[in-house]
Structure formats: structure tokens, C-alpha cells
Design a protein around this nucleic acid. Structure first.
Lengths: 248, 248
DNA sequence: CGACACATTGACCAGACTCAAAGCTAGTGG
DNA sequence: CCACTAGCTTTGAGTCTGGTCAATGTGTCG
């Protein structure tokens, strides 16, 4: 826990924002001067809970997080995955009660930024406000893409689509390349994200391996046939609205 | 088609915005002075298409619209339903390419508002900018709720959850009450929204009628057992972030 | 070496899909 | 005012994708 301004934390955010929009020097400086409180968290810990009324937003600096919702009978739906640079609860700035939870998937370092400072930042820098708004809009676009996968794609296509998305999002912030990216989550997590069971995920993964589409071992995903993966999942990267398109 | 300022159009928007946030007189006046071009559209017409780069936003004044995405093999996923007061493509203000289509479900009256005027409005009125941002955030919350339903609810529960949501959204803008609301869509539309087939939707609806949960005839939904409907779908209205909670 | 979490397998089951055929019902035109 | 139509709803029978339950492998870490 620290309260000194932290360059790494804000560089992380700046890199992410630059992946979705150009950033002026003035905006960059304004971000760098945001006060943050850095926390290190274990894997599988809640950051904010369903029903909370948070007073800070949470910037992921290292590790993975996810939004999720719990239902009766222990059912869990993961709503999104988050990687360094993301602010997964940015929406709490304008919707005061959390309608889902946010938790870590791995050990993670997160920075808490008070709402008041973000409000002041967006008031003083309308350009930044627009970029943050844009970020939440892209988020919404990802939810829509997940809806399409859930509703109208087979389990196989759905998994393929998710892998394309994760690879591109990681690549956009410099955390993946060469068709190789970290995937530090269990098959049960994958199942909860895709609305399937762990058993079925396991079978789909084996089918993907059998077709030499991917390799997945020790939390690393290697995409062996990128264009085939795009094709089977009908993947179109438009919805990620990335600034630098390096879609392979 | 007209270009005179239209009171009904903007009252519609004002009522919607008031359903999610308090509105100052100054904001109200600013909205009333937005220029609009009113169009009347037939049912099942596209308003904006996947891939378009729109220069206007579209305010629904009368009738229903939906966002949807088409896949190969004629598969369609409906992503959201929109009712009078909604601006379903507000996101186009900050993401320039449409990643899905927007079309009417019924005959509809829509107002087109140029992006430039909306940009100017949000620049001059940060309070309104915040409300529009909030609106898109609530939209995202609805996508998340749909994800939960798709991933972890049975067809029966999913239908029940959607009916609760639609009823409350309509009620919030004065278009429903007394457990009765318009539902001017076919079972095939419902199927495309819920990721099911029309045949299965039909069977689920019959089961709901059998349990006296609902009546659905001539495009009118009557909820016969509100609390039971809430219970079976584990419905929690928090995610709608409505200003006046009249959740029965 | 044990323990624990995670991955894999097999056998069986069920919710939702497919295909195809009838029924309705609200408009339309004669 | 009735017959016709087109689009929607309903029904039945058979299928299949993905679920369930339970056991067995396979790391990895202390």
C-alpha cells in the first residue's frame, strides 16, 4: 500500500488509453498527476462487490481481473476479463450502486483512484472525458459481442471468438504478440465466462488442439492458426475500436 | 420529414432522461432547442447498418426499435430493444463505426440529431454530458444482465427476466402500468433476442400461461403474478438504475 | 511424499433444436 | 360481408448439443 504517485501505474493506463484513442501531452500529464493508492491482492479476491457503492475506481496494473455475477445454486457468470490498463469499474463514476462484482483472477496489483479526482479530471479535460466515455462504450461493444456468441454461436465458435478477442486486447497494450499470450485462468473460469460447463470446455479445447488451432499449456495460449480461428468464429475486430489495428 | 423543432420529440427524450437522473431547467431548455429531423418509418426497416459511420444519432419517438447483429446462415441476435425516449446509437458519438445494426420493429417515428449538435450540447452542458454517459452505462448494465440470463438461466427464467425488464423500462417512461404493457414483437423476435428458437419460445410461453404468470395476446403483455415472475427469474432492478423506483 | 487444485474421461441424461405440418387471425379485395 | 392470403402461432416426433455425475489422471508446491 502506498500513496506516492506511481509512474508504472499511470503508464499502464496511458498505454491502454492510447490503444483506443490519440492522447494529447496535456491529457497525459493530467493523468500522471492523478493520486493513487496501490494495493497488491491475492488471486480470487473481491475488489468491489455486487451492491456496493464505491467511492474509488480501480485501475488494474498487473494481473487479471474479472467482472462477475453470482446467482442462486452457486451459478456464476463472468461478464468480462480485465487486464493491465483497464478500469473495470469506471461505470461507478455515474451509476452509484454496483450491479455485479469485480474480483481478481490472479495475484494482482491495482490502483484505487478516488471518484472526486476522476470527476475533477473529466471536468477540466473534456478530451479525456470523451476518451473515458469511449472506453466504457467499447466495453459495451464487447458485451454485445459476447451476447452474439452466447446466443448464436456453438461452444466451439464461442471459445474461438473469445481467444481472438483476448489476443487482440492483450496485443493492443503490448502484452501479447507472435500469436502467443498469457491466459492465466482455469477451464472452470472459462466455462463461467462462456455460459458452459467445465467438462464441455475441456472437450472443446481438445477438439481445438486436435485441429491444431491452438496450444494451451501452463497458462499460455498459442494460436497456431490465426486466420482459421478468425474464420470459424466469424471474428470481426471492429467492435474493439482499436487505434492501432494489428490484427495479423 | 420536418426540420422544425418538435416538442413531442424532445419531451419524449426529456421524460426518458428524467427516468434515470434529475434534470435541471437549464438542461431541459438546452435539449428542447436541439434541431431534429423527424422521419416516419415502416416496421422492420434498418435505421443504421453494421459498418456504417453515422453522422446523426437517432431518437425513438414512437414505436419500437432494436439493435441486432447478423451472422452467416441467416442467424440473427437481437442485442437490445428500444422504446420511445431511447437513443440507441448514442455510442456512435464516440465510436465511429457501427459494430451492429439498428432497425425498427414496428412502424416508428424517429428524430435524427446531428452529432455536431450533440457534441456542442455536451461541451456546453457537462451535466447533460454526464447524464448521456450515464445512459450508455445503464445500457451496458442491461447487456450484462442479458449475458447473465443467456449464460446461466434456463429459457423459462430468461423469458421471465426479460418481461420484468421490459415492463419496468416502459413503466419508467409512462408507457406501462397496472402490470400491463405493449409487446409489439413476434415470437421469432423474442427468440432472436433470447438466443432460442421460435418453437421453444412458444413452448415456454405456454408454460408461463399454464402457470398463470402472464397473458400475452394481440401484442399486449399482462403480468398476472409480478412477484412470482420476479422470484423465478431472480430479478433485481438495480441494474436499470431508475430514478423513480416503482417496482411494484 | 502428500495434498490439493485442476484437467480429463466415460456413461448417461435433458433442455433446446429441427423439420414439417396444421391452425389462427388480421388485413385485403371482391 | 365473406373468402383469401400472408404472416404468425401451435403441435408433434425425432435429434443433438451440451449438461450431470462420478471417477481417475496429472501437475505443482510445501
Amino acid at each position: 500500500m502506498s500513496s506516492a504517485p506511481d509512474n508504472h501505474a499511470m503508464n499502464c493506463l496511458i498505454r491502454k488509453l492510447e490503444s483506443i484513442a490519440p492522447l494529447s501531452d496535456r491529457s497525459r500529464q493530467a493523468i500522471e498527476s492523478l493520486p493513487v493508492r496501490i494495493h497488491k491482492l491475492d488471486a480470487r479476491r473481491d475488489i468491489v462487490r455486487d451492491g456496493d457503492k464505491p467511492t474509488h475506481c480501480c485501475l488494474i496494473i498487473d494481473g487479471w481481473a474479472c467482472r462477475y455475477k453470482l446467482l442462486s445454486q452457486g451459478k456464476r457468470q463472468i461478464l468480462s476479463f480485465h487486464i493491465p490498463g483497464d478500469i473495470p469499474d469506471l461505470q461507478s463514476l455515474h451509476t452509484h450502486t454496483m450491479d455485479h462484482s469485480l474480483g481478481t483472477m490472479t495475484e494482482a496489483t491495482v490502483a484505487f483512484i478516488p471518484h472526486e479526482n476522476l470527476r475533477e479530471l473529466t471536468a477540466r479535460h473534456p478530451g479525456l472525458a470523451a476518451i473515458f466515455w469511449r472506453d466504457t462504450l467499447i466495453d459495451a461493444g464487447i458485451f454485445r459481442a459476447w451476447l452474439v456468441s452466447m446466443g448464436r454461436r456453438s461452444a466451439f465458435e464461442h471459445v474461438a471468438h473469445l481467444f481472438c478477442e483476448l489476443y487482440l486486447k492483450l496485443q493492443a497494450v503490448g502484452l501479447a504478440g507472435n500469436y502467443r499470450c498469457p491466459l492465466p485462468i482455469t477451464q472452470a473460469d472459462l466455462a463461467d465466462a462462456l455460459g458452459l460447463t467445465p467438462v464441455h470446455i475441456n472437450r472443446v479445447l481438445q477438439e481445438m488442439r486436435g485441429k491444431t488451432l491452438i496450444t494451451l499449456r501452463s497458462s499460455t495460449l498459442v494460436i497456431e492458426a490465426w486466420s482459421e480461428l478468425l474464420r470459424v468464429s466469424e471474428f470481426d475486430p471492429t467492435y474493439l475500436h482499436l487505434e492501432k489495428r494489428a490484427t495479423g
